[in-house]
Design a protein around this nucleic acid. Structure first.
Lengths: 225, 225
DNA sequence: TAATTTTGTAAAATAAATGTAAAAAACCCC
DNA sequence: GGGGTTTTTTACATTTATTTTACAAAATTA
């Protein structure tokens, strides 16, 4: 499922967009300002960003510049949504690195058409930084969705694959179970059970001799050694 | 140098665009109607197409559909330029496979910003497939549109053939159902049913003892073993 | 160290995705 | 427009994946 990050301080608009995107089968994440957007980007591998320009605090264009100069995020497509509709605004948005510019007000149909247009092209860039991730004898080829241990391919289930990819893309981070549930499962874990632990266990087993590169930090979560 | 194909019957506009694009360092090609456009596409590997919708003869949208359902050209980005500026025109243009839509009149600066935005993504790769593809006992002769299993010809339907060719040309890739729908069927594959699976099943059956070289990766898609 | 909490893990229960045949619909070629 | 073919949809069987459970083991706390 595709993750879409909505950065928009007007919660009415954000909710409207959220409602429609979810209906269209997307997973949405909402930030009310740029800093919150950056935090979510750190937690969730987003496929597209909808960016309002008029934000409190860090402005939309500043955010866009940060994104575009950051290795990990520079490939994520950005659609600007803004009440500024002058030609010069649009041109400067595009030239700063946005992929499209949608003047407010806009119809949901138009928004969906633009999202689909961009994602259609997206087969070749996955919204994630590197296509091949390596860690010790583990190699993850994201374009081809394959994982190798010491050069030998192993078969992972989808959740195991997502976990491994998240760890490999953030080798220094310890992820709490909540954060893992948010990034990979996509819901708030109200009464959490042992789901994450079970998947970690089976992933470790499939990684054979590298199973112990995934460490658990008591009361904190999981991450790479 | 990037090649840009301009399909526009109004020669004044075409000349204006040509002048500005050349000044910006692009190589331009001009067609006054869709058929001429097709001829140029056959001769020049174009990186982007600017398409006027109101053309004499074959209409712009028809041309777009042809492009998008042709293996060789389907990846070339298309920007529609048109005097039709109603929301529904734009949406239907995007959903037919255009990458952007520029209402007339437009400024050269805007056109250049849009062209640069699209080319920045480097979307243009005109991968020309080999003429004969082989994988284990399967042989696909693309020039003659024939498929052999252990030297014996088998009859495939068009969709089966396209699937097989896509797999054989990308033996390491696992294709999601969405991507298969995009590549082989067309773009607005909204409500997908089990179409892809059904075709995979019949293709497997026709491949006889090699049916299981097409593997399914749960929640991910299909590809070669 | 004992009590408590947290994590590991196998296996059962549940849920979801895929395989497949066949009916229905669409397409195509006289 | 009719007859054959291809494509899509449907329904159900089968397989695979995910979640939950229960208990063991390890870590943390007091």
């Amino acid at each position: 499922m595709r993750n879409i990050l909505i950065i928009e301080d007007d919660t009415d608009i954000a909710e409207l967009i959220t409602y429609n995107l979810q209906k269209a089968g997307y997973k949405t994440h909402h930030a009310v300002n740029a800093n919150e957007g950056l935090i979510i980007l750190g937690e969730v591998a987003c496929d597209i960003i909808l960016l309002d320009l008029m934000l409190p605090g860090l402005k939309g264009m500043e955010f866009l510049k940060i994104i575009r100069s950051n290795d990990e995020y520079s490939n994520i497509p950005v659609i600007i949504i803004s009440a500024k509709t002058h030609e010069q605004d649009i041109i400067s948005g595009l030239n700063t690195g946005a992929d499209d510019y949608l003047p407010k007000p806009f119809s949901m149909e138009m928004l969906l058409a633009k999202i689909n247009t961009i994602l259609r092209r997206g087969a070749s860039w996955t919204g994630r930084a590197a296509n091949i991730l390596e860690y010790q004898g583990i190699k993850l080829d994201d374009a081809n969705h394959k994982v190798y241990v010491d050069g030998r391919e192993i078969k992972l289930t989808h959740k195991e694959y997502e976990l491994l990819r998240l760890f490999l893309s953030n080798p220094d981070t310890i992820f709490s179970r909540d954060r893992l549930l948010n990034s990979i499962w996509g819901y708030d874990s109200q009464s959490y059970t042992r789901t994450v632990d079970a998947h970690i266990a089976s992933l470790r087993k499939k990684l054979l001799s590298y199973g112990d590169v995934i460490i658990s930090v008591s009361k904190t979560g999981y991450g790479l050694k």
